[in-house]
Simulated assay, not measured.
Amino acid sequence: MKSVDDAHTRPEGTSDATVEAVGKLSEAFEVIEEARGSLYAFHRNLGRADLTLGEAVEKLRAAGHTEFADEIETDLVGRNVLAGRWTFQIMEEFDDGYYATFREHDRRVRDELMAGRRHVYEAEMKQERRTHGRQGHEATPTTPTSADD
């Protein structure tokens, strides 16, 4: 079933197999986006942990435990997470390498096979699964329920 809006309608002559394949590629890229978000959360959490660790070192020192404070400060505060890298460097390498390459393939395939249209597979699935004419099942945000079939 075709989508009702031009932004999500398959290009003329595009096969079901192509729509499904491009949809699967987009699904894979969405998983990469989710993983990227987790990687950014990792980056932020480790940064917060390092700053909190610095506060703990200050408190240990203030409490008279300078030996522990000095040892932790020297060995752990500001330590690389991976060889030669803080998390921002991991993020930059991921973004500039794997992520950028994946995003470019997703864009190129969509541009060449779907005329740049996104989520055509999902739009067609929506048309098949929604209850036409029922409130809350509109085809688009601007489609009134009464004129929705």
Rank of each mutant, 00 (worst) to 15 (best):
G78H: 12
D149R: 08
N80Y: 14
D50W: 04
N45R: 07
V81E: 05
R134L: 15
I90D: 01
G13L: 02
H8S: 04
F68G: 09
E55M: 15
S38E: 11
S15P: 08
Y99E: 12
P141Y: 09
T87V: 09
A123D: 00
K59Q: 15
E58D: 15
E12K: 08
K24M: 13
R85T: 02
R36F: 07
G37A: 04
A49N: 06
A100F: 02
G84L: 06
L60M: 15
I90R: 06
L60W: 11
S26D: 07
F94P: 09
E138I: 03
E55P: 00
F88I: 14
D149W: 04
A28K: 04
H119T: 10
S15H: 07
V81M: 12
R134V: 14
H119N: 09
T18P: 06
H132I: 01
A56F: 12
Y99C: 15
E12W: 01
G64S: 13
G47H: 01
G54E: 11
P144M: 02
E71R: 15
T52A: 13
E67M: 14
R85Q: 10
S26H: 08
V77D: 13
G97S: 14
T74Y: 10
K59P: 08
D16L: 11
K126W: 03
A49C: 07
V4A: 07
E73T: 11
H43Y: 10
D111K: 08
S146I: 13
D96C: 11
I32D: 04
H105D: 04
E122Q: 02
D96G: 13
D148P: 00
E67C: 11
R108D: 13
E30V: 09
L46W: 03
Y40Q: 05
A115Y: 03
E33V: 11
E55A: 15
P144Q: 00
P11N: 06
E122D: 03
F42I: 06
V22M: 04
G116S: 05
D6S: 12
A63L: 11
H132P: 00
G64A: 12
R10E: 03
R118Y: 06
